[in-house]
Structures are given as C-alpha cells and as structure tokens.
Amino acid sequence: MENSLIIGKLTKRFRNDILFVDDSSDMLTVTVSHEVIHEVIRFLMDDETLNFNFLTTLCGIHYPENPLPLGVVYHMHNFFQNRRIRIKTFLPLENPSVKSITDLFQTANWMEREAYDFYGILFEGHPNLKRILNMENMDYFPMRKEYPLEDATRKDKDDRFFGR
C-alpha cells in the first residue's frame, strides 16, 4: 500500500478538512481539522484497503505561538501490511474540545485522560474524563509550556549557581 493511495482516499473523502499532508518524515503525517477527527479515524479503521486496526499512541502537544496552540497526535498502525500513519489535529486554547475516540478504541480511554491531565484537552463523549496521573486538586495543566518543571517548594537551590 503506497502513501499516495492513502492520501488519495483521504482527500477524496474529506476534501477541505485535510489541511496538510507531509510525506517527508519517517511516516505519513496528515493534519486534519478537529471537527472531523473522529470520522477520519473511523474511516482509516473501517476502510477495507486502509485497515488501520491498531491505535499505537495518542498524545497532546502545545505550540504557544500558533493560532491553534494545542494539538493531539494520533499514531495508527495497520498490522496486516505493517503501515503506520500519524494524524494531527489542532485546537484553540479557549475550549479545546475534540470528539473522543473511545467508542472506536478502548485503549484511547487512558491516553485521552493523560492528554487531558497534561494539556487540558477536552474529549467530548469520554466516559470518565478526569485526571489520571496528577492529584485531582491540581489546578493547572503541567505540560503546557508556560508552567515550570521544578518543584516550587525547594528552598535550597540558589538560581545564581544554575545560571538562571
């Protein structure tokens, strides 16, 4: 199965919702608008020739400078022909919501909770969207670029000695 076939099938079905196609990196990367992400995943999964039957991973990403700063990256895998594809979608900072794909893949359940926990991306239709790794009373989304890594309670570190 060639990349051109996948691109052709996707553009024929989704036309203007396919925003960007990149064939130059290690795997085919397709950026789609967030309204259709659920249909794109379902199409890739159900189409008989494409047959991407396995969701490898799902993660969030944050580009503070972009007009649509928050992103979700899906990696899918076709076990039969050993093809991989990367799907990206970008969301606004205000109300970053995207349709959950837990109805297609059970495994997306915790991955989406992790993306919510780290980036605050809201997945519509998720059965149990709450924090998974961090404490529930945490009031920010720690993986966003503006938040610091370090523990705020440390007093023994003098910034002068760390070049900060």
């Binding site: 961090n134 720690p142 938040y147 610091p148 890594l149 523990d151 705020a152 440390r154």
Partner: peptide
C-alpha cells in the same frame, strides 16, 4: 531528597 526528579509531582 527527590533525586533527579526535581519536578512538580515528586515529593522532595
């Protein structure tokens, strides 16, 4: 002491 994990989620 928290070791290499000087992060928001680890007790120091």
């Amino acid at each position: 002491s928290g070791g290499i994990f000087d992060t928001y989620s680890v007790l120091q």
